[in-house]
C-alpha cells in the first residue's frame, strides 16, 4: 500500500498533467466552457426547489429551499461527476495503457481532482447565494475541509473498483449511471435526514454519502458542528474501501494491457 503511494508521489507530475488535460479537454469546443460545472448543480437546484420545495413542501428545517438543495448538490455533484468520469478513466485511455508504463491509478485519480476543480467553481455560486439570502456562515464552515476529504477518500475507493472492473466487464459502464440515479434517493439530498425513520438510520448511515451530504449541509447553511459519530463511521467505511480498492486495482492492473 505504502509502496504504491510512494510510486504515486514519484509520478505526481504526470498526475497533474493528466488532471490538466482532463480539465482542458472536458470543456473544449463547448460554448459555455467551465460554466457547465455550475449549470449542473444549479439547474438541479432550481428543479428540486420547484418540485420538492414549493409543490411537495418538503421540510427544509427553516433553510431557504435553494440553499437547502444547493448545499447538498455541491458534494453530490462532486461525487456523481467524479464517479462517472473516473470509472471510465482507464478504458478511455486504452491507447496509453497498452503502450506506456505508469501507475494506472493516476487516470481515475486525475478525474477526481478534475471533479474537485468543478466543485470549487460551484462553491463560488454558493457564496453568492449565501449573500443573497443573507445566511451568515459560522466558524463551523471549516469542517467542510474534513468532510470533503472524507468524500474524496470514499470516491477514490469506489473508483478504484469500478474503473478496474470496467476493464474486464464493460457492463460497469451501464451500471454506473443507473447507480448514481438510484443513489441520490438513499442520500439526504432531496429531503432532510430527519425524514428517515429512526429505526432505519443505522443502515442509512452505512452510506458514507449520507454522512457527507448531511454534515456538509449542517456546517454550511446550518451553521452547526458536524455529527462526529456519523463522520467517524463514514470515514471508517471509506478507508476500508480505499485500502481494499487499491489492493484490488493493483492486482488487476497487471492484466489491463492484455484485456483492455
Amino acid at each position: 500500500m505504502f509502496i504504491h503511494l510512494k510510486e504515486l508521489i514519484k509520478f505526481r507530475e504526470l498526475l497533474f498533467a493528466f488532471t490538466n488535460r482532463e480539465i482542458k479537454v472536458r470543456y473544449k469546443q463547448t460554448l459555455l466552457g467551465a460554466s457547465w460545472a455550475v449549470i449542473q448543480p444549479l439547474s438541479l437546484m432550481i428543479m428540486f426547489t420547484l418540485i420538492f420545495g414549493f409543490f411537495l413542501k418538503i421540510n427544509s428545517e427553516g433553510v431557504p429551499y435553494p440553499l437547502f438543495y444547493y448545499s447538498a448538490l455541491m458534494p453530490w455533484t462532486f461525487f456523481a461527476t467524479s464517479l462517472s468520469f473516473g470509472s471510465l478513466a482507464v478504458i478511455n485511455n486504452g491507447n496509453l495503457v497498452t503502450k506506456i508504463y505508469f501507475p494506472r491509478e493516476i487516470l481515475p485519480f486525475a478525474s477526481i481532482i478534475a471533479g474537485f476543480m468543478d466543485f470549487l467553481i460551484s462553491a463560488l455560486i454558493f457564496i453568492v447565494m449565501l449573500v443573497i439570502y443573507n445566511v451568515p456562515l459560522t466558524i463551523n464552515v471549516v469542517y467542510t475541509i474534513p468532510i470533503v476529504f472524507l468524500e474524496t477518500i470514499f470516491i477514490a475507493g469506489l473508483i478504484l473498483f469500478t474503473s478496474a472492473l470496467n476493464v474486464m466487464w464493460r457492463d460497469i459502464k451501464f451500471v454506473i449511471p443507473l447507480l448514481i440515479q438510484l443513489w441520490i434517493f438513499v442520500t439526504p439530498v432531496i429531503y432532510p435526514l430527519s425524514k428517515v425513520p429512526e429505526k432505519f438510520r443505522p443502515f442509512y448511515m452505512l452510506n458514507p454519502m449520507s454522512s457527507v451530504v448531511e454534515n456538509f449541509r449542517k456546517v454550511t447553511v446550518g451553521g452547526l458542528a458536524p455529527n462526529w459519530n456519523d463522520f467517524a463511521i463514514a470515514l471508517g467505511i471509506s478507508l476500508i474501501l480505499f485500502i481494499f480498492g487499491y489492493k484490488f486495482f493493483k492486482i488487476k492492473e497487471k492484466v489491463f494491457a492484455d484485456v483492455i
Binding site: F11, E13, L14, A17, L96, F102
Partner: peptide, 8 residues
Amino acid sequence: GAILGMKK
C-alpha cells in the same frame, strides 16, 4: 513529456 516521465 510528462507521460514519458519528464519533469515540467
